[in-house]
């Protein structure tokens, strides 16, 4: 290959090499531009190679498909709570007493760290459905069982770092930044909900 390259003596070659380092020469500019384009192209290629690897760690399609859990509410008596699994996390479902509802609705928004009305959190006031994961660092708060501590606000208490939630699952005291999250859910019938 390279039959078109003229024979040059060794000393001349070295001169040429040295000279091509100097800026401003047309030959050098052309080569630099070519090098730059090639490098940029190769960089794009490497970026395109990296993406599938990153994407492969996102939830797979079968994981995304398992997005709903159904629950029959009829066996849950007033004042009782159940915990169900949804997307690998506990969901708290509480059949609230009139006192708990009243307590939750009586709180002025100005007292709340993360203001939200109880009406917005529980459209059907007797049913409170929320993800039972403390918004601080992901522990499961206590308060589902009758024997559990319920915190200073009669709701839930996270034992890991001492976050207190009220009867609407709103953060009232402690390090957690926000209220317990409400998952997407809908009533399929008055006694049947689908979460997700």
């Amino acid at each position: 290959m390279g039959g078109d390259i003229e024979v040059i003596a060794m000393a001349e070659m070295v001169t040429a090499q040295g000279a091509s380092q100097g800026a401003g020469q047309p030959e050098a500019t052309k080569r630099d531009f070519l090098k730059l384009t090639t490098t940029a192209f190769a960089a794009v290629g490497v970026g395109a190679i990296v993406w599938p690897f990153i994407a492969s760690m996102n939830p797979a399609r079968d994981v995304l498909a398992l997005a709903s859990t159904e629950l029959d509410l009829s066996p849950i008596a007033v004042g009782q709570s159940v915990t169900v699994m949804w997307r690998g996390k506990p969901v708290f479902v509480r059949h609230r007493t009139p006192e708990q509802i009243a307590a939750a609705r009586a709180v002025p928004l100005s007292e709340l760290k993360d203001p939200a009305t109880d009406e917005s959190r529980a459209p059907r006031p007797e049913w409170l459905v929320m993800i039972g994961v403390c918004t601080h660092l992901g522990c499961v708060p206590l308060g589902q069982k009758p024997t559990d501590p319920t915190g200073d606000f009669n709701g839930w208490f996270c034992p890991c770092h001492g976050s207190h939630y009220d009867t609407s699952g709103r953060i009232r005291r402690g390090p957690a930044p926000s209220n317990l999250e409400i998952p997407p859910y809908s009533f399929m019938s008055p006694t049947q909900i689908r979460i997700g």
Partner: peptide, 13 residues
């Protein structure tokens, strides 16, 4: 087979 079908770009990898 799950890698081939469900994992994002699993078939490629």
């Amino acid at each position: 087979e799950r890698i081939m079908r469900d994992v994002n770009y699993g078939w490629l990898i």
